[in-house]
Design a binder for these strands. Structure first.
Length: 282
DNA sequence: CCTTAATCCTGGAAGC
DNA sequence: TGCTTCCAGGATTAAG
């Protein structure tokens, strides 16, 4: 499922293909996935894409010309934003909800079988920052230990639940939160506000290692994720815990356990991942 | 405060 | 083989 590394990969792989291109027309196959006005100009028709931005798991396509229309895309779980170079390719894609025609047979396609994703139209990027993105926490690649401390200070939720909350920290989903907590040797059920500062520093340090490594491999294609060119990622080959319940820990060979935290399947190593205070039972 | 469950949805896998 | 059932989960909302 697209989390920060996958969304970042989509942004990078789309950049060459769509930035600077003028949008000729748009085809809307399923109006329901668009939130906000959906006249052609709201979807950047007649406009030129000047920039692609990302915050957490969401991306923004920004128009160059006045009034700087802005399209926010959230891929949800099965969403994909892919540039296709022929009509024949697009015809083979199922669940295409919106198709932007860029000319010369080039089409930007938003497809999303499960429809947990969506598109939001706004008058400008500033409006997006002031509305939809205003409640998001700091981006996972930008956050500092001090900021993280502030974000976690007043919550006793399990650290996993807090890190998954996009209003606390933007970008992590179920894959990378489990991988991160394993890398930090932290049990996912640790109450967030009880973590000492050096654990928060560890979280930030490991996050800044994990996420760029995942980006370097093009993200994780555990199911159907592909980038803006339709290419799979390969970071799933490097997962240490996600999807590996009942298999041996790659570090200590102990059988990995699985449980539910914050309603999500959670895989962890009972030996490597501990509470910071060893007196606590788990 | 916190939790779980239901909701949206499809397709792949597992079970009978 | 072929059907049914379950499960995956991002975000939101309601209920406990």
């Amino acid at each position: 499922m697209p989390e920060l590394p996958e969304v970042e990969t989509v942004c990078r792989s789309l950049s060459d293909q769509i930035v600077g291109r003028k949008i000729q027309r748009v085809t809307i196959r399923r109006r329901g996935i668009i939130h906000g006005p959906a006249q052609p100009h709201h979807l950047l028709v007649g406009n030129t894409i000047s920039e692609i931005r990302r915050h957490g798991k969401q991306m923004a396509l920004i128009g160059k010309n006045a009034p700087h229309a802005c399209v926010c895309v959230h891929l949800g779980m099965t969403g994909a934003l892919v540039c296709r170079q022929s009509k024949r390719q697009v015809a083979h894609d199922r669940h295409c909800h919106v198709i932007w025609h860029l000319g010369q047979e080039s089409n930007l396609v938003f497809r999303d079988p499960r429809r947990f994703g969506g598109i939001w139209t706004l008058a400008s990027f500033a409006k997006l920052e002031k509305s939809r993105w205003a409640s998001l926490g700091p981006d996972a690649l930008q956050i500092t230990p001090t900021k993280l401390r502030k974000q976690l200070a007043n919550t006793a939720r399990p650290i996993k639940a807090a890190l998954l909350d996009q209003n606390v920290l933007a970008g992590l989903g179920n894959i990378y939160v489990d991988e991160l907590l394993f890398n930090c040797h932290l049990h996912p059920a640790n109450p967030a506000c009880l973590l000492p500062f050096d654990q928060l520093q560890s979280l930030v340090t490991k996050m800044r290692r994990l996420l760029p490594r995942a980006i370097a491999k093009g993200g994780s294609s555990t199911r159907d994720y592909v980038d803006g060119r339709g290419r799979m990622g390969h970071f799933q080959l490097y997962h240490r815990v996600y999807g590996r319940a009942k298999q041996p820990c790659r570090r200590c060979q102990t059988t990995l356990l699985h449980t539910k935290i914050a309603g999500r399947t959670t895989v962890f190593c009972p030996k490597c991942q501990r509470y910071p205070t060893p007196t606590k039972k788990y």
